[in-house]
Design a protein around this nucleic acid. Structure first.
Lengths: 182, 182
DNA sequence: GACGATACGGAACGCGCGCCCCGCTTGTCA
DNA sequence: TGACAAGCGGGGCGCGCGTTCCGTATCGTC
């Protein structure tokens, strides 16, 4: 690959990451190209479609989260590790509109790369959850899938009112800590 | 107003309510017209713009919720009334994609009718909340605005996985019940 | 330094959708 | 029942945006 091509690819990716985070999937591709200082054609040489570009951005983001989750899985205190993960998920995504689209939109079935990444993240999250539950730090009547649903919702909520972050997180935390009366 | 005009207006409103709930704001106006059995021009005779139609639909929905909240405000048990309201909000909106757009989208500033309706709903919800808090049924460190943020999030979450409704609601409920350790 | 290949830019195309327009239909009232 | 207004349908326009195409510029190599 030619040097300038490599440089442009990186620029596009950076601009796309920023633009998608700020505006969501709705940002026009021309706008991304403009921010990257390239033409629209160049974007298409590196990514066959706008959706592919979006997926590349999300893939990076999701992978990073998964790695973090795996790190936490080896912490001593399972409860603390779990809630730390929760906090990162909630606040990390609160200011990026792209996640909304990634989570809500069912149109990104994609080549399967994202699906796999998502599955990994879910798995890592579930691992943290199970450990915390074994330590009695989290209620037993919730599974990995439902946890992700909750997380999506919390993220989406903070999208609108980032200022309410702490209280929303507190309610989620306390709700997860609650022991079921059976 | 002529009889057929009245009938057509009602048909459009009904079709729009259904279509918006199923598909969200993204549903093409022609589709709504088709479902209503009228032409696109007819829709525009009754509602000046697509957004106006959407607002009319949402106005109805929001007003209904507010009335319900006001009814509950006179119940004997403030805690039970509050959680009943919560349940209605969460599950009532879980299967309608239009609320997503109404809640997320900031583009519907509108003529102010919706804004007023929203404010009324918030006020009624806040009243229920305050009463429940005075009865020590709900944590004290949360206000009306933050409650609405939480509710939006929960609603949005269930949009994707309606099956997780009960557990999500349970976590929200228990999180709200939790007393703060100070 | 010249030449071939690779990559670039941005004008142009097609499509979907909101909205308007106008010839025709239908309801209403005398 | 006739005449006029009110209302209707759907073709068409304009715009925004994703995508493509191709003449031009740039890189790497001999």
């Amino acid at each position: 690959m030619r040097a300038d091509a490599q440089r442009n690819r990186a620029r596009v990716l950076a601009a796309a990451t920023e633009a998608f985070a700020a505006e969501g999937l709705a940002v026009p591709l021309d706008e991304i190209a403009r921010r990257a200082g390239v033409g629209a054609g160049t974007v298409y040489r590196h990514f066959p479609t706008k959706e592919a570009l979006f997926e590349a951005v999300m893939l990076d983001r999701i992978t990073r989260l998964t790695e973090y989750a795996k790190t936490l899985a080896e912490a001593e205190d399972p409860g603390a590790a779990f809630f730390e993960f929760l906090r990162r998920m909630v606040f990390g995504a609160a200011s990026s509109k792209d996640l909304i689209d990634a989570l809500i939109g069912q149109e990104l079935s994609g080549a399967g790369l994202i699906v796999a990444a998502k599955r990994d993240l879910h798995q890592a999250g579930a691992e943290l959850l199970t450990r915390a539950q074994r330590a009695s730090a989290v209620r037993a009547d919730i599974g990995g899938t439902e946890l992700m649903t909750l997380l999506s919702g919390t993220t989406l909520a903070l999208q609108q009112n980032p200022a309410d972050g702490e209280i929303v997180f507190a309610v989620l935390r306390d709700g997860l800590r609650a022991q079921i009366p059976t």
